[in-house]
Nucleic acid binder design. Sequence first.
RNA 1: GGAGGCGUCGCCUAGUCCGGUCUAUGGCGCCCGCCUGCUAAGCGGGUUUGGGGUUUAUCCCCCAUCGCGAGUUCAAAUCUCGCCGCCUCCGCCA
Length: 429
Amino acid sequence: MHDPRALLDPGNEAVRRLARRGYTLDSAALEELLSSRNSGIKTADDLRAESKKLAGEVGKTAKAGGDVTALKERARELKDEIKQAEERAEAASADLRDLMLNIPNLPLDTLPDGFSDEDATEVRRWGTPPQFDFTPRDHVELGERTGILDFARATKLSGPRFRVARGAGAALERGLASFFLDLHTREHGYTEFSVPHLVMPSALLGTGQLPKFEEDLFRTAAGTRDLYLIPTAEVPLTNLHADEIVEPGDLPLAYTAWTPCFRSEAGSYGRDTRGLIRLHEFEKVEMVRIVAADSSQNELEKLVGHAEAVLQKLGLAHRTILLAAGDTGFGAQMTYDVEVWLPGQDTYREISSCSDCGQFQARRANIRTRTDEGKREFVATLNGSGLPIGRTMAAVLENGQQADGSIVLPEVLTRYTGFSTIHADGKTD
RNA sequence: GGAGGCGUCGCCUAGUCCGGUCUAUGGCGCCCGCCUGCUAAGCGGGUUUGGGGUUUAUCCCCCAUCGCGAGUUCAAAUCUCGCCGCCUCCGCCA
């Protein structure tokens, strides 16, 4: 969410910047809502001041033995006027809030123009895609032939877009998660968290999934509780400090958590229907950074570096792209995607998305800190995948496949899995 | 799920029975100043948060804020109802 006054400040060029992502800002409507809310508040406040004064007079007059019937009559009238003024102010306030909650973040001017991943700027590449003297299989075929992935039975249990991992596959998932967490906590300075996977609507409002993207979420109901399954650990991790003032000396905060992520994938019917790429439920290690507002750009470079480091330790070829203004997510002002090479698809595919949200989420979630002068100020928040378990497993399987049908794992994983090769029959050593 | 207790300005706390003098008491902490070779002590002052108006480096004024929300009343920290959270005991449970 933005500060409405800042959005109306011509110096911020909000109209032009939002247009780059296809959002048309109606400044006139915004200005009208803001001034009508403010004048409503003023009117109600002034009437309340008069009412308070009158109540005091009633008390004094009564004590002195005077007649208070006229005063009381006027006070009752005033009460009705206050109620009406409050209702007007409340209505304008609610309309303003609805509008504000649906305005996306301002993309930074450094982002390329455009609306799709084809408009992104490639920032750097690392490693060389492996060459095969046979036609490489995709991870679905590799997983099913070795018996470590079972999509048919997952469908039997839960319908499309789920996975069952078995034996070495399940161990590999667990090993990947442990490896990611160890790397981030020991070498990148993150604090590991275990967090709830069900959250209240207020948390999703804070990070920007609600109210606009409700259809992307799984919603649960039990008794009077109304809880959502988290689509990413970004939600609980960022909202840990909602409604708090974080001491400046504690910044930057660097948090990581391994959680399942639940996404309805509404609107993506027919896309990536095979395999581990797009599931309703997947596991991910997420990184969140809560930082001073003026350092968010530097912090984004660190964050994306941490995501890239995971792939480098795994020896997986990847590239990093800067998303176009129109392709950047609702809450972000700048996003890097890291894409890993998938031999089965003969292309780079997104494996991490690292975003600088500026103060956008902090204002929604009310996360603040203090400036040097002791004034309260919203922090900046960043989040990035580090990494998703499923897509990483797909990359590990596809990149490590051998002519004989076996899969050689990255060396760094062997101490986590206890094996370095998955043979064609699913056995390991 | 049952019974009881508690929720006040960063922390602790007075006030709630019996509505107006609450512009919420006091202590701790913190900030500013005075005093003093230095430090400590002492003395004086300040210190909830959010919004609006005015002005815009300031200041000033107003409104709201005693867990949250509704109600009664001219007037609510105080009375009524609902909800939430925490604590203790019982039941159930991984």
